[in-house]
Design a protein around this nucleic acid. Structure first.
Lengths: 164, 164
DNA sequence: ATGGGGCTTCCCATCGTGGGAAGGTCAAGT
DNA sequence: ACTTGACCTTCCCACGATGGGAAGCCCCAT
């Protein structure tokens, strides 16, 4: 079976098949005389394994370990469990972090009128205490040489302009 | 103020300051004659704004929009709110996805004894229906030429070996 | 024999961040 | 004045996993 067929049969793109092989997640595929990669049903099973593990969010290095255990008749299920629980814990941590960010954003958005007026608690929160717009130049003007690499073409914002 | 001081004052690394400038999130910094970037208090306020927005998980392109609105006296808070709620919605979607992955993993781990024996529902789940190990070669052996690019040195795993 | 689709490799882009090398600059201490 | 160490500059590379695309070869069916 060629790479395209293996891809379709496993749900992993051909591009990824080559990549997995390159980075050592999969063994180098057998080739035809013409250099075409050839896959067996057994290979497809491995690919489906990888696909499911990826769908669970596992990174490739952990999947590599799992494949090793999967093919090891003498494995201890404790090793597999450890990998799974470690990943789950990392996911939980990330989820907590993102939930915090998300709730903060939602709270701010809720406090925002969302109309045509400029007042906005979201921006206020992000600027937090930046009401003081007094500019305190900390370098004497004599030492300055405006934008050697930034030729400063035409219209430039007064305070801090956003480029491009 | 030099880049290191601006970095410390804002909580954004000097490396990131240069990067933000390169990708156009920030205006090109004023330079001293020697080419050193010089930052004002006003710049540091912008940097802190960026830092807080990053901490909320906002991508740089959205932060660029926010800075534009922040500096626009005639902004409509609705525009800010839309950006925030869009990002929050994307976060929620991601969180839901990761929560599903996480729960699946936790369920599997819970079902796993986690002892010295090889039986493991986690692996079973990932292999899902891969009990049939009959190999069906789909290419006639005459067309094969073992590993032109994979010289197949010495010990190789029987079925699908993990490399490196 | 020709055409189209599949395969190969190689390069690039993403997104934000860090590491490091090679070389110039500044300020403080001798 | 000179040295030294800390700082700055640019440039390149790496991550992780994926997609896009180009140039060129291969295989099969018409």
């Amino acid at each position: 079976m060629n790479i395209g067929q293996a891809a379709q049969a496993s749900g992993v793109s051909a591009k990824m098949l080559r990549y997995y092989e390159n980075v050592g997640l999969l063994a180098k595929a057998v080739r035809t005389e013409a250099g075409y990669r050839v896959y067996s049903e057994s290979d497809v099973r491995t690919l489906r394994f990888v696909k499911r593990a990826r769908d669970l969010g596992l990174p490739l290095d952990r999947i590599k370990l799992l494949i090793g255990l999967w093919q090891d008749e003498d494995r201890a299920s404790a090793d597999v469990k450890r990998i799974a629980t470690e990943h789950a814990a990392e996911l939980r941590a990330k989820i907590a972090e993102w939930t915090q960010m998300c709730e903060a954003l939602e709270n701010m958005a809720e406090a925002c009128h969302g109309d045509h007026r400029p007042e906005c608690p979201i921006l206020d929160e992000m600027a937090e205490g930046a009401q003081d717009f007094t500019t305190l130049p900390s370098v004497s003007a004599s030492k300055l040489k405006a934008g050697r690499q930034a030729p400063r073409t035409g219209t430039q914002r007064a305070v801090q302009g956003v480029m491009r």
